[in-house]
Design a protein around this nucleic acid. Structure first.
Length: 947
RNA sequence: GCCCAGGUGGUGGAAUUGGUAGACACGCUGGACUUAAAAUCCAGUGGGCAUUGCGCCCGUGCGGGUUCAAGUCCCGCCCUGGGUACCA
């Protein structure tokens, strides 16, 4: 009886579902283990073979942990709010909720395309998810808590001294006692200073405005990335190379009133926290760079004829005597104030020109130097010299203070600017040649710098900072690149903010009124007035008496107020989803204290590295905030994180002879002038042979094609590139499950190579694991009948078994799934050779392999006479004694080159080894009469003779 | 430019602390079975020289070095992939 994977896989998937085999317990005596996959967005295109790589790896680990007696939480759900479903809604009018449902459960889209259904595809892979904890971020029962967390953020501020969040009510208390002069809290840059008395005399609205400048989520006029094509703002991590990450549309800078998250307050904690978690260095580095901590000084320059001062941040305060001009960002708030009438027009023109240029244009023209003198002068704090103030777009409004002290001698950008505008370049370094460029060496010695002359960079830093502090013109300062994250999206398919506006000030809905459910609208587009799509909702007002959503007609701004029209960004729901899995069906809290304290954190988190500076930073921030509020037990939520690599496609190329409809086989293409064209990889069989008839039917353009064959076959060219529909190189896991089975797919994806590496997919390779599965099956069968013997295993058989146990265990510790698969093959080859069908070997073998090929293992387990699922069997215990050999086959090397082997007793002494080896005929041959200088003997490793 | 990861047969990769380079597979070649093909099984397969037998020489991106011994460690380069970019 050959192994029928189709039937067996169906049988066990049904069994697991019916018996809820993988349901995790929230109160268990067993130790917990939480294995999490990154939240997928269920797209209509469905899975390709690259997607399940991480799911398979995490599933193997989860199953492995169950075999070791852990209570394993291994959940799955959907990050279902987001742009693609909404873009589809704009095009077709289909509600994004329906699109999302179809994408998850399968069906047919508006254009009649068959949608495979994300969940069906996942279930076919035999993944041991606890489906009872499944949810979608677009479920009101889920986003109710996203809204709730938003309110908590709104109700807190960040105490810089304590480095933690505190209730905003405490802050108001402090203000009424001592104003804000002494408080050290994270706030907007333009927060005014006031005394207790001033505070008391502020109107209620003014007080609210000021508190808003401290809240961890706040409404403020900010410079945002506006994407006109998508009709929404985007966060920094959603903008890649000046265009939107999704769609690649241009992004421009724009000032808008938006909700923001004060993530910058947590910059230091986010940085420090990295030290405590086991994530890859690449990922930690990416986060460190994004946070961008730098040490330096803030220096205040007064302005000639003005009370205003310009504060700059510099990492090189030692070069202060080299300042020959200042540059402000065009958006800097003081620009208009300080510009002299003479330069007003030029400055206005410059600001206008800059604002027109998109981020992308600015980046593309990095080499273009632009700027404009303002006519104003700053006063150098140490020399008293007058320093001209310029504006230039190489200074970014969002970093530091949006102003720099320019030291052309020490900074290449300042140097280029000075050269371009003929500004003097005073040399402040001993013996530096400034004819070609700035001297940015940290080894330089200072000159022309008064009390710093002759000092090195490191020596002068503290001196100059001390001086600045002494005269009150500056201080030591640490700066972070990390900026607050814009949290509003002018979109429909996202969480509504639980916010209404009274007298244009935001007010939170009462917590008990959540969720605020997304309203129905007629079209998923902005309103004619330019308001976000929610502006189309007819019932989108909040009645503060009835505590419910009512018709807009009832708005009176006394008891009925308009609701917020923006929605939350895609990352809102994914910033805390890992907590919800702990208690997914709780309708009283986001998760119960008991559940949170039992599961605590994620033990293993698997996902792609593309989330390094987005999701993985935001979610750490929310976790830290919730931790500060005492709502979660850990301030880092994922102990260990692994980034799985990408599986690349292997595109198939045909070569069209230029100007004809003839296609020439790969081996002959050099004889013609050809253009390569990509064709569907599914038309290519063994040996890269193209199914010519299939190609003719595939697309009309090939219908009348002629083919120049080699050896009667058309051989395609191959190219490795990203798996993508447009390259026709997408391989669907459903097809693989159909042809080879899910177990074969699981084994093969792991066998392909190290988890973290990118590697190309090649369907041909599947025959290897497929053959292995059959071979394994045959071990348990004789003459097509299941048959195992109860005979005692031999020493040799036990050795192979225990070698495998050890290997699998070690590999698991290092997440080297690929080498385990190789080792299964080796062991099965060995047992086949030994004709071993003993229960004492085959039972543990089935358990060892069950995380990788669970369907096959369950079937064998049942045949072995077990009533329960193999998922909760006990992992075989490794015993060293079976590996111990009496002899070892030593490689004997001469000057490091291996020449022959000799079997020696492991207990033999060094002296004996030397005399045995020297007496050997082969040794004498290799020595050729010379005397050995030295004999290296490493027990159970090597013998090396040096001569 | 900066940061990170990587470079081993025709291909994917193995060699976990320096100790037999190329495990395990794919592919390819030859053979068996078959009318034939597929499937299956067996053998060979890093390159070169020799194949009359032993065998020998060269080989882990390149050039140096440390060591009895280097794919592995150190120094200097080259290349590929990813991230990031006027960050003061």
């Amino acid at each position: 009886m050959e192994y029928n994977f189709i039937e067996v896989e169906k049988k066990w998937q049904k069994y697991w579902e019916n018996h809820q085999v993988f349901q995790a317990e929230n109160n268990s005596e067993k130790p917990k283990y939480y294995v999490l996959d990154m939240f997928p967005y269920p797209s209509g295109a469905g899975l390709h073979v690259g997607h399940p790589l991480g799911y398979i790896a995490s599933d193997i680990y989860a199953r492995y942990k169950r075999l070791h007696g852990f209570n394993v939480l291994h959940p799955m759900g959907y990050d279902s709010f987001g742009l693609p479903a909404e873009q589809y809604a704009i095009q077709t009018g289909q509600h994004p909720a329906i699109t999302t449902m179809v994408n998850i459960n399968g069906g047919v889209d508006k254009a009649g395309n068959k949608i495979p259904g994300y969940e069906k595809q996942l279930k076919r892979l035999g993944l041991s998810f606890d489906w009872s904890r499944k949810y979608r971020t677009s479920d009101p029962s889920y986003y109710r808590w996203t809204q709730w967390i938003f309110i908590q953020l709104y109700n807190h501020y960040f105490d810089n001294n304590a480095q933690k969040a505190r209730p905003i009510a405490e802050l108001a208390e402090i203000f009424s006692k001592e104003g804000n002069l002494r408080i050290n809290a994270a706030c907007d840059a333009d927060t005014p200073q006031f005394s207790a008395n001033e505070w008391k005399n502020f109107s209620e609205k003014r007080k609210e405005e000021i508190l808003l400048q401290y809240r961890l989520t706040y409404l403020a006029e900010t410079e945002v990335n506006w994407c006109p094509e998508l009709g929404t703002v985007l966060a920094n991590d959603e903008v890649v190379n000046g265009v939107s990450e999704r769609g690649g549309y241009p992004v421009v800078r724009k000032k808008m009133k938006q909700w923001s998250m004060r993530i910058s307050a947590y910059a230091e904690r986010l940085l420090q926290g990295l030290e405590t978690i086991d994530w890859t260095d690449a990922l930690k580095d990416a986060q460190r760079n994004w946070i961008g901590k730098s040490h330096g000084a803030s220096v205040n320059f007064s302005i000639k004829g003005s009370d205003e001062i310009i504060e700059v941040f510099t990492t090189r305060p030692d070069t202060l005597f080299g300042v020959s001009f200042m540059v402000l960002a065009p958006e800097h708030e003081l620009v208009r104030e300080i510009t002299t009438s003479e330069y007003k027009e030029d400055v206005e023109n410059y600001i206008y020109e800059t604002s027109k240029r998109s981020e992308r244009e600015r980046m593309a023209e990095v080499k273009r130097i632009t700027g404009q003198f303002t006519g104003a002068y700053a006063i150098h704090p140490l020399t008293g010299d007058e320093v001209p103030i310029w504006i230039g777009d190489y200074v970014l409004a969002g970093y530091g203070t949006g102003a720099v002290m320019a030291v052309p001698a020490g900074d290449q950008r300042d140097y280029d600017f000075a050269k371009h505008f003929n500004i003097p370049i005073p040399n402040i370094f001993e013996g530096a040649d400034l004819s070609e460029g700035a001297c940015d060496s940290k080894e330089a010695t200072l000159a022309n710098s008064e009390f710093l002359n002759g000092l090195s960079v490191t020596e002068s830093m503290p001196k100059v900072i001390a001086k600045l502090e002494e005269i009150g013109a500056g201080e030591q300062k640490t700066n972070y690149r990390l900026r607050d994250a814009v949290f509003s999206r002018q979109r429909y398919w996202g969480e509504p903010f639980p916010v209404y506006y009274a007298d244009r000030m935001p007010k939170m809905l009462p917590e008990e009124c959540l969720p605020l459910v997304l309203p129905e609208i007629d079209e998923y587009l902005p309103t004619e007035a330019g308001d976000p799509p929610l502006g189309r909702a007819k019932n989108w007002a909040w009645d503060t008496n009835k505590n419910k959503v009512v018709s807009n007609d009832l708005i009176d701004d006394k008891t009925v107020f308009p609701l917020e029209l923006n929605t939350m960004p895609g990352w809102a729901g994914s910033s805390w989803y890992f907590l919800r899995y702990m208690d997914a069906n709780n309708d009283q809290e986001f998760a119960s204290k008991e559940a949170l304290n039992y599961w605590k954190d994620v033990d293993l988190y698997l996902g792609g590295s593309e989330h390094a500076t987005g999701h993985l930073l935001y979610s750490r921030f929310w976790q830290k905030f919730l931790y500060d509020c005492g709502l979660v037990p850990k301030d880092e939520y994922a102990k260990k994180l692994i980034n799985q690599g990408m599986i690349l496609g292997t595109s198939a190329l045909v070569y069209r002879v230029r100007g004809t409809n003839q296609y020439v086989s790969n081996g002959l293409k050099e004889q013609y002038e050809t253009d390569p064209l990509r064709v569907d990889v599914n038309l290519v069989g063994q040996g890269d042979v193209l199914d010519v008839e299939g190609l003719k039917k595939w697309m009309p353009e090939f219908e009348d094609a002629e083919f120049i064959l080699e050896d009667g076959k058309y051989i395609v060219g191959r190219e490795v590139e990203k798996m993508s529909k447009r390259w026709y190189n997408v391989v669907n896991p459903d097809d693989i499950c159909e042809d080879y089975g899910a177990d074969a797919l699981r084994l093969y994806e792991m066998f392909l190579g190290p988890l973290e590496q990118s590697k190309p997919w090649n369907t041909q390779g599947l025959s290897g694991v497929s053959g292995f599965i059959r071979k394994l099956w045959r071990l348990y069968h004789t003459n097509e009948q299941f048959e195992v013997s109860d005979a005692e295993p031999t020493k040799e058989e036990l050795k192979v078994l225990h070698q495998m146990i050890k290997k699998v265990q070690d590999d698991m510790d290092h997440f080297s799934f690929n080498t385990s698969v190789s080792h299964f093959m080796i062991a099965v080859n060995e047992f086949t050779r030994m004709k071993c069908n003993k229960r004492a070997i085959l039972e543990p073998l089935a358990i060892l392999i069950s995380p990788y090929a669970p369907h096959l293992a369950e079937e064998l387990w049942e045949k072995l006479g077990h009533k329960d699922s193999i998922s909760y069997a006990t992992f075989p215990v490794f015993e060293e004694k079976y590996l111990q050999d009496d002899t070892y086959s030593y490689p004997v090397s001469f000057n490091g080159k291996m020449r022959f082997k000799r079997e020696l007793d492991v207990s033999v002494s060094r002296d004996d080894v030397e005399s045995i080896i020297l007496a050997d005929e082969e040794t004498q041959k290799w020595l050729g009469g010379k005397t050995p200088k030295k004999i290296i003997y490493v027990p159970k490793k090597i013998i090396n003779i040096v001569f």
